[in-house]
Design a protein around this nucleic acid. Structure first.
Lengths: 223, 223
DNA sequence: AAGTCATATGACTTTAAGGTCATTATAATC
DNA sequence: GATTATAATGACCTTAAAGTCATATGACTT
């Protein structure tokens, strides 16, 4: 079975939410963790389309029938994990959102970028399935992501708006487009850093270079 | 069946080339076209993992058995199409490569970007399966892409080197990183343009904005 | 006309994988 | 201890889809 764009359409249009069944929440925390971990490992390694229920089940050391008492189907676990991922990331980014007006564009940007990287670092597998999910680019996915994570491109919008207020920005820049440029840069660089498992030093170099690149592109008066 | 990174490993390591069988080339040109087109339609619509041989075969109006006389298996057609795609794109980009030193960074960049877009325009389906292919990011894919298309990031490297020679570039910029920033920007913008099927005007606006963004980021003395 | 060879065909086989369910075990309640 | 409710189990079912093969077709040769 493969995920069809139709699946995502349903999620958005009808607002279906994929949740584990009550039985899953009846389990002791530890066992839930083990099951989620097994699914996570599988999805991170093979992506949704390549994943295999038998492997998940044997990884979690439970019977297949048990699994299907906790989740309706494969999509159910998958979206449950995505949900967890997104809400975790939202929680982490929230504070930065709030304090935007207290810092310069550059500081804001660096902090957010680093926070994103820290998140990817400490949740490499979550991050990988997030990537897999995002890769299935489609109109609906974007809607989904936008709905669940209004911070994606938007956070850069806010940074830019703030910078504009402060008179730091070049005149005549299209904020929306610029924000999406920045977002795609950050995404690709993050992916690069993670998938090449760079050392701390390499990573800092890349980040510095990226920040400079973006600063030159959007800020006037850089010395 | 899904494509495993293993598949790509084999391609790179052993240098396996996926080619149709001789029987395929014995067919009249027109029939070959029809078969390729049917496969292309299928892969463009569903990606490799979601594609279905029965649909391809019925789309091409041939028997399933016939198909398997032309190609060893599903991967065979898929990579045959990718091959075609890549070599076509290489052919299109070649002239720009040659005349880099005759034009300014900005003109070079605009021309290449537009050529890439024209290519995506006139081969929307090829482009889509190319995207699907590239989405399966993995070490091996990159190797593969690099091998078949040494122009991806490299072409921007050359543009930057030229600009550096001409003294147009900011000092102290890391060329490799900057080239990869530019490459990922171009990719994401191209994808956006195609998948949102922008009008000519919207498209020009985006391209202009992107060019300005990149120029400000890398060139000194912009008025 | 008979023989030969390449090609075409689609019913059939095989396999993989998602999902089910009758049965058994365990826990809770009386 | 008996009864009931809830959870666990894995052999089994079902389906989808890739790939095969015995047979048919027809073009070309002698």
């Amino acid at each position: 079975m493969t995920l069809k764009s139709y699946d995502f359409e349903v999620i958005i249009a009808v607002g279906v939410v994929y949740l584990p069944k009550q039985t899953f929440y009846n389990l002791p925390y530890e066992k839930r963790q083990i099951i989620e971990q097994a699914a996570l490992d599988e999805f991170a390694k093979y992506g949704f389309d390549g994943s295999n229920m038998n492997r998940i089940v044997s990884g979690a050391k439970i019977a297949k029938g048990s699994f299907y008492q906790y989740f309706d189907d494969k999509k159910d676990v998958f979206f449950h994990l995505i949900d967890t991922l997104v809400s975790q990331k939202v929680k982490i980014l929230e504070p930065f959102f709030i304090s935007i007006h207290e810092k310069s564009f550059t500081d804001n940007f660096r902090d957010i970028m680093k926070a994103g990287l820290d998140f990817a670092d400490s949740n490499p597998k979550y991050y990988m399935i997030g990537e897999d999910f995002a890769k299935k680019q489609s109109y609906f996915i974007e809607e989904f992501v936008t709905k669940y994570n209004p911070m994606a491109v938007d956070i850069y919008m806010q940074l830019l708006e703030q910078a504009q207020k402060d008179g730091e920005l070049y005149e005549g820049i299209n904020l929306t487009m610029t924000a999406s440029f920045i977002s795609s840069l950050v995404n690709s660089v993050t992916l690069n850093i993670i998938s090449n498992s760079m050392t701390k030093q390499q990573r800092d170099t890349v980040i510095m270079e990226l920040i400079d690149f973006i600063r030159r592109a959007v800020l006037k008066d850089i010395v």
